[in-house]
Design a protein around this nucleic acid. Structure first.
Lengths: 199, 199
DNA sequence: CCTCCTAAAACGAATGCTCGTTCTTTTATG
DNA sequence: CATAAAAGAACGAGCATTCGTTTTAGGAGG
Protein backbone atom coordinates (compact mmCIF):
# COMPACT_ATOMS: atom_id res chain seq x y z
CA UNK A 1 0.00 0.00 0.00
CA UNK A 2 2.71 2.45 0.94
CA UNK A 3 4.74 1.75 -2.17
CA UNK A 4 8.35 1.51 -0.94
CA UNK A 5 10.83 1.70 -3.80
CA UNK A 6 13.88 2.54 -1.76
CA UNK A 7 17.18 1.00 -2.83
CA UNK A 8 19.37 -0.78 -0.29
CA UNK A 9 21.20 1.34 2.24
CA UNK A 10 24.50 -0.14 1.13
CA UNK A 11 23.80 1.14 -2.32
CA UNK A 12 23.26 4.64 -0.94
CA UNK A 13 26.46 4.76 1.04
CA UNK A 14 28.35 3.23 -1.86
CA UNK A 15 27.09 5.97 -4.16
CA UNK A 16 28.08 8.56 -1.61
CA UNK A 17 31.55 7.08 -1.39
CA UNK A 18 31.74 6.94 -5.18
CA UNK A 19 31.13 10.67 -5.29
CA UNK A 20 33.68 11.37 -2.56
CA UNK A 21 36.27 9.22 -4.29
CA UNK A 22 35.74 11.17 -7.48
CA UNK A 23 36.01 14.39 -5.51
CA UNK A 24 39.31 13.30 -3.98
CA UNK A 25 40.69 12.40 -7.39
CA UNK A 26 39.68 15.75 -8.84
CA UNK A 27 40.85 17.77 -5.86
CA UNK A 28 44.20 16.02 -5.98
CA UNK A 29 44.57 16.86 -9.65
CA UNK A 30 43.08 20.34 -9.82
CA UNK A 31 42.56 21.65 -6.30
CA UNK A 32 39.40 22.46 -4.40
CA UNK A 33 38.30 25.51 -6.32
CA UNK A 34 39.56 24.81 -9.81
CA UNK A 35 37.62 21.58 -9.81
CA UNK A 36 34.19 22.31 -11.24
CA UNK A 37 31.10 20.36 -10.36
CA UNK A 38 31.03 19.13 -13.92
CA UNK A 39 34.60 17.81 -13.61
CA UNK A 40 33.68 15.98 -10.46
CA UNK A 41 30.42 14.64 -11.90
CA UNK A 42 32.16 13.37 -15.00
CA UNK A 43 34.85 11.71 -12.86
CA UNK A 44 32.14 9.98 -10.84
CA UNK A 45 30.37 8.87 -14.00
CA UNK A 46 27.06 10.17 -12.73
CA UNK A 47 24.62 12.85 -13.69
CA UNK A 48 24.26 16.30 -12.21
CA UNK A 49 21.02 15.38 -10.50
CA UNK A 50 22.44 12.23 -8.96
CA UNK A 51 25.26 14.09 -7.27
CA UNK A 52 22.95 16.80 -6.00
CA UNK A 53 20.78 14.13 -4.45
CA UNK A 54 23.63 13.12 -2.15
CA UNK A 55 25.21 16.51 -1.49
CA UNK A 56 23.32 19.71 -1.61
CA UNK A 57 26.27 21.87 -2.58
CA UNK A 58 29.91 21.83 -3.53
CA UNK A 59 30.77 23.21 -0.09
CA UNK A 60 29.12 20.19 1.46
CA UNK A 61 31.33 17.90 -0.59
CA UNK A 62 34.41 19.83 0.48
CA UNK A 63 33.31 19.58 4.10
CA UNK A 64 32.84 15.82 3.75
CA UNK A 65 36.34 15.50 2.30
CA UNK A 66 37.72 17.58 5.17
CA UNK A 67 35.96 15.33 7.68
CA UNK A 68 37.52 12.22 6.22
CA UNK A 69 41.03 13.41 5.69
CA UNK A 70 42.59 12.26 8.97
CA UNK A 71 40.79 8.91 9.13
CA UNK A 72 43.57 6.69 7.86
CA UNK A 73 46.29 8.40 9.83
CA UNK A 74 44.35 8.19 13.09
CA UNK A 75 44.08 4.45 12.93
CA UNK A 76 47.74 4.09 12.09
CA UNK A 77 48.81 6.26 15.00
CA UNK A 78 46.72 4.15 17.34
CA UNK A 79 48.32 1.06 15.95
CA UNK A 80 51.81 2.42 16.53
CA UNK A 81 50.92 3.61 20.03
CA UNK A 82 49.53 0.20 20.95
CA UNK A 83 52.92 -1.37 20.36
CA UNK A 84 54.50 0.64 23.17
CA UNK A 85 57.86 0.87 21.51
CA UNK A 86 60.61 3.21 22.62
CA UNK A 87 59.71 6.75 21.59
CA UNK A 88 62.29 6.94 18.89
CA UNK A 89 61.21 3.73 17.24
CA UNK A 90 57.63 4.89 17.31
CA UNK A 91 58.68 8.07 15.61
CA UNK A 92 60.38 6.05 12.90
CA UNK A 93 57.16 4.20 12.27
CA UNK A 94 55.16 7.42 12.25
CA UNK A 95 57.46 8.85 9.62
CA UNK A 96 56.76 5.76 7.58
CA UNK A 97 53.06 6.52 7.89
CA UNK A 98 53.61 10.09 6.76
CA UNK A 99 55.75 8.93 3.88
CA UNK A 100 53.00 6.72 2.67
CA UNK A 101 50.43 9.51 3.04
CA UNK A 102 52.64 11.84 1.04
CA UNK A 103 52.26 9.95 -2.22
CA UNK A 104 49.46 10.57 -4.70
CA UNK A 105 47.32 7.93 -3.03
CA UNK A 106 47.89 9.42 0.41
CA UNK A 107 45.84 11.98 2.25
CA UNK A 108 48.50 14.64 2.67
CA UNK A 109 48.23 16.44 -0.66
CA UNK A 110 44.51 16.81 -0.12
CA UNK A 111 45.04 17.66 3.54
CA UNK A 112 47.18 20.56 2.38
CA UNK A 113 44.30 21.88 0.30
CA UNK A 114 42.00 21.47 3.27
CA UNK A 115 44.38 23.33 5.60
CA UNK A 116 44.50 26.23 3.20
CA UNK A 117 40.72 26.26 3.02
CA UNK A 118 40.50 26.10 6.82
CA UNK A 119 42.10 29.52 7.14
CA UNK A 120 39.49 31.00 4.80
CA UNK A 121 36.24 29.19 5.54
CA UNK A 122 35.28 29.00 9.23
CA UNK A 123 33.16 25.89 8.68
CA UNK A 124 36.18 24.01 7.36
CA UNK A 125 38.31 25.64 10.04
CA UNK A 126 36.11 24.15 12.73
CA UNK A 127 36.29 20.69 11.18
CA UNK A 128 40.06 20.87 10.89
CA UNK A 129 40.42 22.15 14.43
CA UNK A 130 38.35 19.31 15.81
CA UNK A 131 39.95 16.56 13.76
CA UNK A 132 43.52 17.59 14.34
CA UNK A 133 42.93 18.13 18.03
CA UNK A 134 41.66 14.56 18.04
CA UNK A 135 44.72 13.36 16.19
CA UNK A 136 46.91 15.10 18.72
CA UNK A 137 45.13 13.31 21.54
CA UNK A 138 45.93 9.99 19.94
CA UNK A 139 49.55 10.95 19.64
CA UNK A 140 49.59 11.94 23.28
CA UNK A 141 49.04 8.31 24.25
CA UNK A 142 52.33 7.50 22.65
CA UNK A 143 54.06 10.22 24.63
CA UNK A 144 52.44 8.97 27.82
CA UNK A 145 53.93 5.56 27.19
CA UNK A 146 57.34 7.16 26.78
CA UNK A 147 56.90 8.97 30.09
CA UNK A 148 55.87 5.76 31.83
CA UNK A 149 58.94 4.07 30.43
CA UNK A 150 61.12 6.80 31.92
CA UNK A 151 62.18 8.12 28.55
CA UNK A 152 61.37 11.70 29.44
CA UNK A 153 62.75 14.00 32.14
CA UNK A 154 60.76 13.82 35.35
CA UNK A 155 58.03 16.43 35.51
CA UNK A 156 57.95 17.08 31.79
CA UNK A 157 54.59 18.43 30.68
CA UNK A 158 53.22 15.76 28.40
CA UNK A 159 51.06 18.14 26.40
CA UNK A 160 54.08 20.21 25.61
CA UNK A 161 56.10 17.19 24.58
CA UNK A 162 53.20 16.01 22.46
CA UNK A 163 53.20 19.33 20.64
CA UNK A 164 56.86 18.98 19.87
CA UNK A 165 56.43 15.46 18.56
CA UNK A 166 53.28 16.38 16.67
CA UNK A 167 54.96 19.18 14.80
CA UNK A 168 57.47 16.83 13.25
CA UNK A 169 54.84 14.95 11.31
CA UNK A 170 53.48 17.76 9.14
CA UNK A 171 56.94 19.31 9.16
CA UNK A 172 58.45 16.23 7.62
CA UNK A 173 55.52 15.67 5.28
CA UNK A 174 55.55 19.20 3.96
CA UNK A 175 59.24 19.05 3.35
CA UNK A 176 58.80 15.87 1.35
CA UNK A 177 55.87 17.25 -0.56
CA UNK A 178 57.31 20.63 -1.46
CA UNK A 179 61.05 20.11 -1.63
CA UNK A 180 61.45 16.38 -2.08
CA UNK A 181 64.29 16.08 0.43
CA UNK A 182 65.06 14.53 2.81
CA UNK A 183 64.80 10.77 2.76
CA UNK A 184 63.12 9.26 5.77
CA UNK A 185 66.36 7.68 6.90
CA UNK A 186 68.24 10.93 6.61
CA UNK A 187 65.60 12.79 8.51
CA UNK A 188 65.64 10.19 11.25
CA UNK A 189 69.40 10.42 11.56
CA UNK A 190 69.11 14.21 11.69
CA UNK A 191 66.61 13.97 14.53
CA UNK A 192 68.80 11.47 16.26
CA UNK A 193 71.80 13.77 16.06
CA UNK A 194 69.73 16.57 17.52
CA UNK A 195 68.35 14.42 20.29
CA UNK A 196 71.56 12.78 21.32
CA UNK A 197 73.69 15.83 21.59
CA UNK A 198 77.05 15.78 23.41
CA UNK A 199 76.93 17.07 26.96
CA UNK B 1 62.17 65.44 -28.31
CA UNK B 2 61.73 61.70 -28.24
CA UNK B 3 58.24 62.01 -26.95
CA UNK B 4 58.79 60.57 -23.52
CA UNK B 5 55.63 60.36 -21.43
CA UNK B 6 56.93 57.73 -19.11
CA UNK B 7 56.24 58.18 -15.44
CA UNK B 8 59.03 57.74 -12.89
CA UNK B 9 60.31 54.24 -12.32
CA UNK B 10 59.55 54.55 -8.64
CA UNK B 11 55.97 55.19 -9.55
CA UNK B 12 55.87 52.00 -11.62
CA UNK B 13 57.27 49.77 -8.91
CA UNK B 14 55.05 51.46 -6.34
CA UNK B 15 51.99 50.68 -8.45
CA UNK B 16 53.16 47.11 -8.81
CA UNK B 17 53.56 46.82 -5.08
CA UNK B 18 50.18 48.43 -4.57
CA UNK B 19 48.61 45.67 -6.66
CA UNK B 20 50.52 42.94 -4.87
CA UNK B 21 49.55 44.34 -1.48
CA UNK B 22 45.91 44.29 -2.53
CA UNK B 23 46.37 40.75 -3.78
CA UNK B 24 47.85 39.66 -0.45
CA UNK B 25 44.96 41.26 1.43
CA UNK B 26 42.39 39.54 -0.76
CA UNK B 27 44.14 36.18 -0.78
CA UNK B 28 44.39 36.29 2.99
CA UNK B 29 40.68 36.97 3.26
CA UNK B 30 39.27 34.83 0.48
CA UNK B 31 41.98 32.52 -0.81
CA UNK B 32 43.72 32.36 -4.16
CA UNK B 33 40.86 31.12 -6.27
CA UNK B 34 37.86 32.62 -4.56
CA UNK B 35 39.38 36.04 -4.97
CA UNK B 36 38.18 37.43 -8.27
CA UNK B 37 40.09 39.91 -10.33
CA UNK B 38 37.35 42.40 -9.59
CA UNK B 39 37.79 41.90 -5.83
CA UNK B 40 41.49 42.47 -6.18
CA UNK B 41 41.08 45.46 -8.47
CA UNK B 42 38.61 47.08 -6.12
CA UNK B 43 40.91 46.45 -3.16
CA UNK B 44 43.75 48.11 -5.05
CA UNK B 45 41.52 51.06 -5.93
CA UNK B 46 42.52 50.83 -9.56
CA UNK B 47 40.82 50.02 -12.83
CA UNK B 48 40.82 46.74 -14.71
CA UNK B 49 43.10 48.14 -17.38
CA UNK B 50 45.62 49.48 -14.90
CA UNK B 51 46.08 46.10 -13.24
CA UNK B 52 46.41 44.33 -16.57
CA UNK B 53 49.17 46.75 -17.54
CA UNK B 54 51.33 45.43 -14.72
CA UNK B 55 50.37 41.78 -14.75
CA UNK B 56 49.18 40.00 -17.79
CA UNK B 57 47.07 37.44 -15.95
CA UNK B 58 45.83 36.38 -12.56
CA UNK B 59 48.28 33.48 -12.63
CA UNK B 60 51.11 35.96 -12.97
CA UNK B 61 49.93 37.77 -9.85
CA UNK B 62 49.76 34.50 -7.95
CA UNK B 63 53.27 33.65 -9.11
CA UNK B 64 54.53 37.03 -7.95
CA UNK B 65 52.96 36.47 -4.54
CA UNK B 66 54.56 33.03 -4.38
CA UNK B 67 57.94 34.52 -5.23
CA UNK B 68 57.73 37.02 -2.42
CA UNK B 69 56.36 34.86 0.32
CA UNK B 70 59.64 33.80 1.96
CA UNK B 71 61.33 37.18 1.71
CA UNK B 72 60.76 38.41 5.23
CA UNK B 73 61.56 35.09 6.84
CA UNK B 74 64.82 34.68 4.93
CA UNK B 75 66.23 37.91 6.24
CA UNK B 76 65.20 37.06 9.78
CA UNK B 77 66.84 33.65 9.61
CA UNK B 78 70.04 35.25 8.43
CA UNK B 79 69.86 37.69 11.28
CA UNK B 80 69.45 34.91 13.83
CA UNK B 81 72.23 32.86 12.25
CA UNK B 82 74.62 35.81 12.34
CA UNK B 83 74.36 35.95 16.10
CA UNK B 84 75.93 32.51 16.47
CA UNK B 85 73.95 31.65 19.58
CA UNK B 86 73.69 28.16 21.02
CA UNK B 87 71.41 26.09 18.82
CA UNK B 88 68.61 26.00 21.29
CA UNK B 89 68.55 29.74 21.76
CA UNK B 90 68.53 30.22 18.01
CA UNK B 91 65.56 27.89 17.79
CA UNK B 92 63.75 29.97 20.36
CA UNK B 93 64.29 33.06 18.26
CA UNK B 94 63.16 31.25 15.13
CA UNK B 95 59.93 30.24 16.81
CA UNK B 96 59.42 33.89 17.60
CA UNK B 97 59.82 34.65 13.91
CA UNK B 98 57.27 32.00 13.02
CA UNK B 99 54.89 33.28 15.66
CA UNK B 100 55.01 36.68 14.15
CA UNK B 101 54.49 35.30 10.65
CA UNK B 102 51.50 33.34 11.84
CA UNK B 103 49.35 36.39 12.53
CA UNK B 104 47.15 38.04 9.91
CA UNK B 105 49.99 40.37 8.93
CA UNK B 106 52.44 37.52 8.57
CA UNK B 107 53.28 35.48 5.51
CA UNK B 108 52.29 32.07 6.80
CA UNK B 109 48.56 32.08 6.05
CA UNK B 110 49.32 33.08 2.49
CA UNK B 111 52.23 30.67 2.34
CA UNK B 112 49.76 27.91 3.15
CA UNK B 113 47.66 28.88 0.16
CA UNK B 114 50.77 28.91 -1.98
CA UNK B 115 51.86 25.47 -0.78
CA UNK B 116 48.49 24.05 -1.69
CA UNK B 117 48.73 25.64 -5.11
CA UNK B 118 52.25 24.29 -5.53
CA UNK B 119 50.97 20.71 -5.53
CA UNK B 120 48.55 21.57 -8.33
CA UNK B 121 50.31 24.03 -10.58
CA UNK B 122 53.84 23.06 -11.65
CA UNK B 123 54.85 26.68 -12.23
CA UNK B 124 54.09 27.52 -8.61
CA UNK B 125 55.61 24.21 -7.58
CA UNK B 126 58.90 25.20 -9.15
CA UNK B 127 58.90 28.58 -7.44
CA UNK B 128 58.15 27.03 -4.07
CA UNK B 129 60.79 24.37 -4.55
CA UNK B 130 63.41 26.95 -5.36
CA UNK B 131 62.51 29.40 -2.60
CA UNK B 132 62.23 26.86 0.18
CA UNK B 133 65.41 25.13 -0.88
CA UNK B 134 67.02 28.55 -0.55
CA UNK B 135 65.48 29.05 2.86
CA UNK B 136 66.82 25.69 3.94
CA UNK B 137 70.31 26.70 2.85
CA UNK B 138 70.14 29.75 5.09
CA UNK B 139 69.06 27.61 7.99
CA UNK B 140 71.95 25.29 7.33
CA UNK B 141 74.38 28.05 8.26
CA UNK B 142 72.88 28.03 11.72
CA UNK B 143 73.37 24.28 11.99
CA UNK B 144 76.94 24.63 10.79
CA UNK B 145 77.61 27.03 13.62
CA UNK B 146 76.18 24.52 16.07
CA UNK B 147 78.50 21.85 14.67
CA UNK B 148 81.51 24.15 14.95
CA UNK B 149 80.60 24.86 18.54
CA UNK B 150 80.57 21.15 19.24
CA UNK B 151 76.88 21.02 19.92
CA UNK B 152 76.29 18.07 17.60
CA UNK B 153 77.64 14.51 17.69
CA UNK B 154 80.85 14.15 15.72
CA UNK B 155 80.22 13.08 12.15
CA UNK B 156 76.61 14.12 12.10
CA UNK B 157 75.43 14.87 8.57
CA UNK B 158 74.61 18.55 8.64
CA UNK B 159 72.07 18.33 5.84
CA UNK B 160 70.17 15.74 7.79
CA UNK B 161 70.25 17.81 10.94
CA UNK B 162 69.14 20.84 8.96
CA UNK B 163 66.13 18.90 7.73
CA UNK B 164 65.17 18.02 11.26
CA UNK B 165 65.47 21.60 12.42
CA UNK B 166 63.73 22.91 9.32
CA UNK B 167 60.70 20.72 9.83
CA UNK B 168 60.00 22.26 13.20
CA UNK B 169 59.29 25.65 11.74
CA UNK B 170 56.32 24.81 9.52
CA UNK B 171 55.33 22.13 12.01
CA UNK B 172 55.03 24.67 14.78
CA UNK B 173 53.46 27.29 12.53
CA UNK B 174 50.81 24.96 11.19
CA UNK B 175 49.91 23.81 14.67
CA UNK B 176 49.45 27.43 15.72
CA UNK B 177 47.47 28.28 12.64
CA UNK B 178 45.12 25.32 12.60
CA UNK B 179 44.78 24.28 16.25
CA UNK B 180 45.85 27.36 18.18
CA UNK B 181 47.93 25.41 20.68
CA UNK B 182 50.63 25.35 21.85
CA UNK B 183 52.14 28.54 23.19
CA UNK B 184 55.67 29.19 22.06
CA UNK B 185 56.98 28.72 25.57
CA UNK B 186 55.18 25.42 25.96
CA UNK B 187 56.45 24.18 22.64
CA UNK B 188 59.99 25.15 23.55
CA UNK B 189 59.75 23.30 26.85
CA UNK B 190 58.38 20.28 24.99
CA UNK B 191 61.35 20.32 22.64
CA UNK B 192 63.66 20.78 25.58
CA UNK B 193 62.21 17.75 27.34
CA UNK B 194 62.81 15.74 24.22
CA UNK B 195 66.37 17.04 23.97
CA UNK B 196 67.29 16.38 27.54
CA UNK B 197 66.12 12.84 27.88
CA UNK B 198 67.51 10.62 30.62
CA UNK B 199 70.19 8.21 29.49
C1' DC C 1 6.70 -16.41 -11.07
C1' DC C 2 4.98 -12.63 -13.42
C1' DT C 3 2.86 -7.92 -13.87
C1' DC C 4 1.67 -3.64 -12.38
C1' DC C 5 2.31 0.46 -9.71
C1' DT C 6 4.45 3.94 -7.02
C1' DA C 7 7.89 6.65 -5.27
C1' DA C 8 12.74 7.06 -5.10
C1' DA C 9 16.67 7.76 -7.87
C1' DA C 10 18.85 9.36 -11.81
C1' DC C 11 18.99 12.31 -15.57
C1' DG C 12 20.43 16.44 -18.28
C1' DA C 13 18.83 20.66 -20.55
C1' DA C 14 18.27 25.14 -19.07
C1' DT C 15 19.28 29.28 -16.14
C1' DG C 16 21.25 33.27 -14.38
C1' DC C 17 25.46 34.86 -12.96
C1' DT C 18 30.20 35.84 -12.43
C1' DC C 19 34.54 35.02 -14.11
C1' DG C 20 39.10 36.52 -16.48
C1' DT C 21 40.36 39.02 -20.16
C1' DT C 22 40.23 42.26 -24.27
C1' DC C 23 39.91 46.48 -26.42
C1' DT C 24 38.62 51.06 -27.34
C1' DT C 25 38.59 55.46 -25.25
C1' DT C 26 40.12 59.01 -22.05
C1' DT C 27 43.55 61.18 -19.11
C1' DA C 28 48.01 62.65 -17.58
C1' DT C 29 52.89 63.63 -18.15
C1' DG C 30 57.63 65.23 -19.53
C1' DC D 1 52.02 67.20 -28.31
C1' DA D 2 53.22 62.48 -28.54
C1' DT D 3 52.65 58.62 -26.02
C1' DA D 4 52.46 55.88 -21.86
C1' DA D 5 49.16 54.99 -18.33
C1' DA D 6 44.66 54.41 -16.65
C1' DA D 7 39.99 53.67 -17.32
C1' DG D 8 35.86 50.83 -17.75
C1' DA D 9 32.31 48.94 -20.93
C1' DA D 10 31.75 44.80 -23.23
C1' DC D 11 32.24 39.72 -24.15
C1' DG D 12 32.19 34.88 -24.39
C1' DA D 13 33.11 31.03 -21.58
C1' DG D 14 32.14 28.36 -17.85
C1' DC D 15 30.33 28.24 -13.25
C1' DA D 16 27.02 26.09 -9.44
C1' DT D 17 22.62 24.99 -9.13
C1' DT D 18 17.48 24.14 -10.33
C1' DC D 19 13.84 21.56 -11.99
C1' DG D 20 10.72 19.04 -15.02
C1' DT D 21 11.23 14.52 -16.96
C1' DT D 22 12.53 9.65 -17.40
C1' DT D 23 14.15 5.41 -15.54
C1' DT D 24 14.40 1.95 -12.15
C1' DA D 25 13.77 -0.80 -7.96
C1' DG D 26 10.95 -3.73 -5.46
C1' DG D 27 6.63 -4.74 -2.84
C1' DA D 28 1.60 -6.06 -3.78
C1' DG D 29 -1.88 -8.68 -6.21
C1' DG D 30 -2.79 -12.33 -9.08
Amino acid sequence: MWGVPRVSEDHLTARREQILAAARACFLRKGLHTTSMQDLIKEAGLSVGAVYRYFKSKDEIIAAIAEGVVGGISAQIDEVASRRLPLFESMALLLEVIDQQTGPDGALPIALQVWAEATIDPAIGAIVHERYTGLRARLRVLVEHAAEAGELPAGADLDEVTSAVYSMLPGYGLQRLLIGNPSREGYLRGMQALYNRPA
